[in-house]
Amino acid sequence: MRYILKKTAILILTMFLISGFTFLAFHIIPGDPAQLILGTSASPEQLEALRHQLGTDLPLYRQYIQWITGFLHGDFGTSIRYSMPVASLLQGHLAPTLILGAMVIAATLLLGIPLGILGAHKRDSLCGHILSLLDMIGISFPEFFLSILLMWIFGLILHLFTPGQYVDYGSDPAGFFRFMIFPAAAIAIPQTAILAKYVRTAVIEELGKDYVRTAKGKGSTMQGILYSHVLKNAIVSIVPLIGMMIGSIFSGSIIIEQVFGIPGVGRLLISSVSGRDFPLTETIVMYIALIIVLTNFAVDIVIQWIDPRIRLNG
């Protein structure tokens, strides 16, 4: 219980810092928004009136409180570029990103963990070679180059999908998934490589421990040891990595949506950055950071539930 309380306190502090940074970044550094909206030709009276209307004449902490209360109530402001509420704009772009993320997570877990275990079990087999190839691609191929290659080979040469022509889920679910396999692969391949390598190292490390030798001495089979003892212990070091991967998957999604022309949150974010649409950028940034912090919090809780030693030491 004390552990959960401590983690919750850190969670609240981190969220406060994140919102503080975001507020600082988008409300203080860019300068006076009234000036930005009205331009240099505005009279002092006009500026004063708009400042009052926007609330930027209030002291900083009042502005922050106003902003954060609005945010917590789902009022994210109005997009400058699209002149519509950020909330409804976001809603329209959420689905493709979430589905893409879910596909990537599923593929990564389903491939990465077995590949890692196999790699540890049969160190010098075909699987080991596949792993080292994956690993090299994962580390040194930028995601956007990988997606361009996938698009070229599978889209233009093999005609498995039409690059650049996003299929909406509502109009053609099968076509949608056929299209999404490729962007998902572009993010999942490097992530699978990282996860598999990590799992492999964790399992090999566990295999070298005393209890494995004892079990062998008692006559257990290698398979038995692997599944009943080693994996249980290795999972403790694997779960935190999955928390960290959520962040990389979001970063991947931001770039990949741009490459494949998927109308998701990532694409919205990039267009808001190039168009200097601060309210929109700010909301998306806060959203992603909060999701990541919450996932990591959940991971911490799950971990201490799996392995009580952490609770006692931390």
Binding site: G247, S248, I254, I292
Partner: peptide
């Protein structure tokens, strides 16, 4: 370290995007 951790909870590319958009 708390500040570093908070900055670190943004994915890297997101930090870069924020800085590019406000500068």
């Amino acid at each position: 370290m708390r500040i570093i951790d908070a900055v670190n909870s943004f994915p890297g590319i997101l930090i870069a995007l924020v800085i590019v958009s406000i500068l």
